[in-house]
Design a protein around this nucleic acid. Structure first.
Lengths: 192, 192
DNA sequence: TTTTTCTATTGATTTTAATCAACGTTATTT
DNA sequence: AAATAACGTTGATTAAAATCAATAGAAAAA
């Protein structure tokens, strides 16, 4: 249940056995059924979730009821409404499971204590957020500059596993377009 | 020349006088004329820049020669091609000055040494990148979900100072649309 | 199994943004 | 002061994506 978390941690920062034992006490495992919410818009985000197994999505819903997916999360990724988590304001995103999933939760108090008391955890956090920032910057660059076809081909090149496991209309939502449009983009790509 | 940097630092993390003195040795001030490059695509990004004065922009250029602005930087902000800085690969962004500007440069070796030796600096870095992440996430949400009018009104509400100091066609570029289109969006907003 | 829901595709039409071109104004340079 | 470059706007046209509607297959639930 904790293997992936510690593997991922050690890849970034060395960790002693004592630290691992200590750290484990701060983690709360949770299982999610497909479609189950981890967080609902309006609630306060009480924890960061490390994904041990499964696929989740974070998304907002507009006035018309359309979902806009801001992030997918797979095994080894972290998912959360970070703004809500850090500020205590109510969440603007929903998070739910696309498949049956298992996550490790780190509560706010756990997070703060770990940051204060375990330097390795701060480094782990810094590296995680840096990686997330770089990934998002790449995505944003693509959205504002690349034509649709490239955006989609870039996406499948970068995240082939997501394409396998997630329905197309969700990928369309992630790319900021309608399912019909993505279907047509795919058709055009296939012709060549 | 260093006031804003230390003010910004102290707002995030407490800093002793000794630490401040030590830190100052790692900072290299640099003045930039309007239009002067801080970084050119293809070069390796050798430093992070803290902006003491002025306005800069980071942007990519596509095959057709169009600029796509990924980030503006004002006083108190940090600007860099972080991916290039961290990996040593050549930069995909250009950075140049929109106004005459003054920046403080932190080289890669300085950055690494500070991270190793000064815990306050790691915290400062973590908080900076977290803030940048949250700002970019908000922007990305807007790009994939909001209609153009809202994107623009959100932008002017969030960054009125940028609107004052930066030509409109650059704001269009930042929003991922053509200057003519932004002009028409503004016209429609004004009618109401 | 049968029903229901979810999913991807296609067609016709409307809406939206890009493109191409021209123009007047304001800033910079020389 | 004159010349040049940069900037913002407007118009006409083309291209791209959203919308509305219908359909068929696949997956999940009853």
């Amino acid at each position: 249940m904790y293997e992936l978390f510690f593997k991922s941690f050690r890849q970034k920062v060395p960790l002693t056995v004592q630290e691992e034992t200590q750290l484990k006490r701060y983690l709360t495992p949770k299982k999610l059924r497909k479609k189950q919410y981890l967080l609902q818009e309006g609630d306060v985000c009480k924890s960061i979730a490390f994904i041990e197994k499964g696929v989740l999505k974070a998304y907002s819903v507009d006035e018309k009821g359309n979902e806009h997916i801001i992030q997918f999360g797979l095994e080894g990724w972290i998912i959360s409404d970070l703004y809500s988590f850090l500020t205590g304001e109510s969440a603007t995103y929903n998070i739910d499971a696309i498949e049956d999933s298992e996550v490790l939760l780190i509560s706010k108090s756990a997070h703060e204590e770990l940051l204060r008391e375990m330097p390795a955890y701060e480094t782990f956090t810094r590296l995680n957020i840096t990686g997330a920032y770089l990934a998002m910057q790449k995505r944003l660059t693509s959205v504002i500059s690349a034509p649709l076809k490239e955006q989609y081909t870039d996406f499948i090149a970068l995240y082939p596993d997501i394409v396998q496991r997630v329905p197309q209309h969700m990928i369309a939502s992630y790319l900021g377009l309608k399912p019909e449009t993505l279907s047509r983009v795919r058709q055009k790509i296939a012709q060549k």
